[in-house]
Amino acid sequence: MMAWERARGRSAKWFLAPALALLAVFVVWPLVRAGVWSFTNADLLSPERARGVGLDNYTGLWADGRFRRAFLNTWMFALLVVPAQTVLAFFMALWVNRPEPAWRVLRGVFFLPVVVAMPVLAVLWTLLYQPAQGGEMGPVNAALGVFGVPPQAWLRDPALALPAIAFMSVWQGVGLQMMVFLAGLQSVPKELIEAARIDGAGAWQRVWHVVVPSMRNTIIFVVTVTMILAFRIFVQPYLMTRGGPGNSTLSLIQSVYEMTFVTQDLGRACAAAMAFLVLVGGLTWAQRRWMKEERE
């Protein structure tokens, strides 16, 4: 630590004041308030006049059929998206990890949907998934028709709506995870792969026994981040299906949003948000632990 850094310490408060004040007002304070409200019967219009109700909001959450459905849907969505997106991103990264400039273009193509705003993509895929109607059908049905697949109702079919949204979400997000894997791939020692090749390991064996183990931290990172992003799903079902048909795509965030603005039960909405925070926080904590083990 240099002398001038100590001498300048007095001006630190002016450098920190704007950021810390904003974080305190717009992040910490709302969080504390949500924590307090989650134990009260606060409602949307006059949260100040709330009375304490103990753990009622938390126990009530699970009894609330709509919330339970949203909770299960969100888990289901994560289970559909996370393995598919991780595995696909991994192999796409291997596929485009070549030096020739042409592969840069392909990398750009895979990354393109990441750059487009989610509401735009949600609207676009609603049109792509259009069911067949009087001789007309959406491009997805038309394309599958080429291979003899009969037209489906996709977003209007309770059994297909969530998987259809999951497919679209993987398509949108896989480019980002591919980039993360690509960065991780650069740190796999080339000599190790070369040595395995000389020892007669096939392409598949080299990936499984050399690349995967040396990318353990990257894989853990991608899985947990994808999982957290999956839990935060909201825009796609909100715009594409409004949570339907028959609540089959109702997301956690949408249920919290509705608790706040539709049923105006602020206390319960805050309890739901806190439960969500515990879920995401737990995942982040688990990620840290696993990754640390590797470093030691």
């Binding site: 969080l31 308030r33 949500a34 965030i253 602020l266 969500f276």
Partner: peptide, 12 residues
């Protein structure tokens, strides 16, 4: 995540 904070942030 923003989504957790959205509701209490709205009141602030």
């Amino acid at each position: 995540p923003v989504e957790v904070l959205a509701v209490p942030m709205f009141f602030t």
